[in-house]
Structures are given as C-alpha cells and as structure tokens.
Design a protein around this nucleic acid. Structure first.
Lengths: 176, 176
DNA sequence: TCATGATTGATTATCCCTGACCATAGTTAT
DNA sequence: ATAACTATGGTCAGGGATAATCAATCATGA
C-alpha cells in the first residue's frame, strides 16, 4: 500500500487525472523532453524519486517499462558521485533508419500481444493513424485465424507468418 | 443458470427489453461511446462486471465478440494495479447501403485484378487514403503468396480467402 | 433437436511499487 | 599510490492488484 501522498506528489499531479505513479513520472519526463529543444534530458534519480515521494528504484521501473528502444528512447547513466541518468529520444534522419529499427523490433516472430503493443506505440508516435492501425489488426487477426482454424499451424509458425505480414505492411507505410 | 439478477443488473436493464446480458453490456458501452465526445472510453473490468452482477471474464467475452476491429473498434488494456480497459471507436456510422454494396461487389471470391480495381475506385471516391489502400494491397498479396507457396492452394481457394480478408478490412473501415 | 452463443470460475499472466542488497565513480586520508 | 569513505545508480524478488485465458456447462434459437 502506498504510504504517503506527499506534497511533492500532489505537485506533480496537479490538475491531472493521474491515478498512477508510473504514468505521472512518465509524463513528467516526457514533458521535460518536449520543453527542451535538445533531444535529451539529464536527471538525478534520487531527486526525482524524492520529488514524487517514492523509492528511487521506482524510477528504474519507469525507465525500463516506458523509455525503451521500441518506444524510441535510449537511456544512459552513471553511478557514483556526480551520477546521472540521461534519456535520449532516438532521431531518424532517413526513413530507412526508422524502417530498420522497426524491422529489428518485429523480428522473425511476434505474438499478437507484442504486435498489439507495437501498433499502439506507433500510433501514439504519430507514425500510424487509427484507421491504419485498425487495418493492420484486422489483417493480423485474419492471418492468425486462418493459420489456426484452416491450417492447424503451431503458435510459433503463426507468429512467424504474422511477423512477416506486419513487417511488409509497416515497410509499405514507412516508405510511402 | 444465471444466479442473481441483482439490483445493479436491473438498473442497467431499466425500461429495456434486454433478455441478454451480453447485449446489455454491449449497449451500455455503446451508449458510453455515444455520450462522450471523445471517441474512446475507459473502464475498470471488475467494476463494470460488478455493476452488471456478473463475472469479470464476461466483459472479455463481450469485447471479443462485439468490439472487434472488423466492427470498427480497437481495445487496449492493462493488467495489474491501476489496470484498465479502453475501447476506441475508429469508424463511424455509415449508410448501410454503401457497405452492402461493397460486400456484394467483393462477393465470395475475388481476383487480384478485381480487388485492385475496386480499391482504386474507393480511393478515387475518397473512402480510402493512398496509405490505407497500400496496406490492403500488401495484406492481400501476402495472403495470396502464402496460399500459393506455402500451402499450394488452388487459385479459387486463394481468391475466396482473399475476398474474406478484403471484406473484413473494408468492413472495419466503413462500418461502426 | 442441435448447433451456436452465453456464462461461469479456476488458473495464469502482467503490472505496479517497495525495500534490501549490490555495483561503481569520485574523494580523501595515509 | 592505494585504501577507505561517500555518494550515487542498478538489480532482484516479493506482495498486492488487476486483467486474460480456457475449459466446462448452460441457454437459446433456427
């Protein structure tokens, strides 16, 4: 059970419908990145944790779960005196780079869950419209259904086909 | 046998000829989407189930059977603390005629050529963006390739599958 | 009557958050 | 130099809170 909704917590939560510590910290960092012109921000883990009235390792959880390469971020850090955490937004100069990055993430096999998540992230990043996302989900479901009902394929085989289809569709969009 | 038509169940059922739990929940969510200006609603599965006096997994059944991408919806969710279910409406009510017309044209089987021409027309009429058309063409081609190379299906069987996939994708976009 | 749809509950999977313990970089004393 | 000290950040396992899945059963409608 959370023990202490501190003043600081309230401060960062002001006016917001933010029932969730992790989401609050995520939003705070996100806002920092937006407000800076530079594509990165530096933080002190301890201070940030204190300002949200939580344990420092909570910051690691937020970084690990939210500021991942799949979502377009890199994190650097240093321990010891003058330690820091730096969060960088990945910038793609060429459409090719973006594409390669996405293909790496999809890989040779992807579960419905993972595909679902990826599409959600891509839409949040503005790389996909809601309608485009819907089309892709329909195609993936159809592929999975066929593989299961009509051809009795293993889960892994279906996930392989799914990855191929997903990559083709994203490839088409990113280069369009 | 359903055990307990609770007060809450009655509440959601008031004035209605609603013999069916699933339909009642479907209608409730649908009404939520209509009453909001935003095209999405967030729910707590447990609470919704409690308010209908049913088991939580019933909510999953309603979502899986009624709020599919083929019907123009996307569902996002998160487990664990502060979990939620969010339902997004992507497509809006369109004249039924248009959809029926399209389904008639596609029919039970459609060649790549015919599909190609149909998509072209739909794009010209502004019912499809170029990117959306591209996505559909990629999915159809992938389906055809799989059918040919991996499963050695007949042309007709492939065209049947293709028609099904095409209808699903168009349905998702056009229908609510 | 029979196929399909609806409902349940047990089990499993995932997420959030904490705190104890570990690792590393810089600073200071000897 | 080097060892000890100080100041950071990282890892991990566990508890609590949700949601998803699945198999079994029941109900409904053609």
């Amino acid at each position: 059970m959370r023990r202490c909704p501190l003043q600081e917590r309230l401060y960062h939560n002001e006016g917001g419908n933010m029932p969730n510590l992790t989401r609050a910290i995520e939003k705070y960092i996100h806002d920092l990145l937006e407000s800076e012109e530079a594509p990165s921000v530096s933080l002190r883990r301890k201070e940030l944790a204190a300002s949200f009235g939580c344990v420092p390792s909570q910051i690691n959880y937020v970084l690990r779960s939210r500021f991942t390469p799949e979502r377009g971020f890199l994190v650097e850090s240093q321990r010891g005196g003058h330690g820091y955490i730096r969060i960088l937004r990945i910038a793609f100069e060429e459409p090719e780079e973006k594409l390669n990055h996405i293909e790496d993430i999809v890989g040779d096999s992807i579960s419905e869950q993972e595909a679902h998540r990826l599409l959600q992230v891509l839409q949040e990043r503005g790389l996909l419209t809601a309608r485009e996302r819907l089309l892709i989900e329909v195609a993936l479901r159809h592929s999975d259904e066929m593989g299961q009902s009509d051809f009795d394929l293993s889960q892994h085989k279906r996930n392989t086909i799914q990855a191929e289809l997903l990559k083709r569709m994203l490839r088409g969009l990113m280069l369009a």
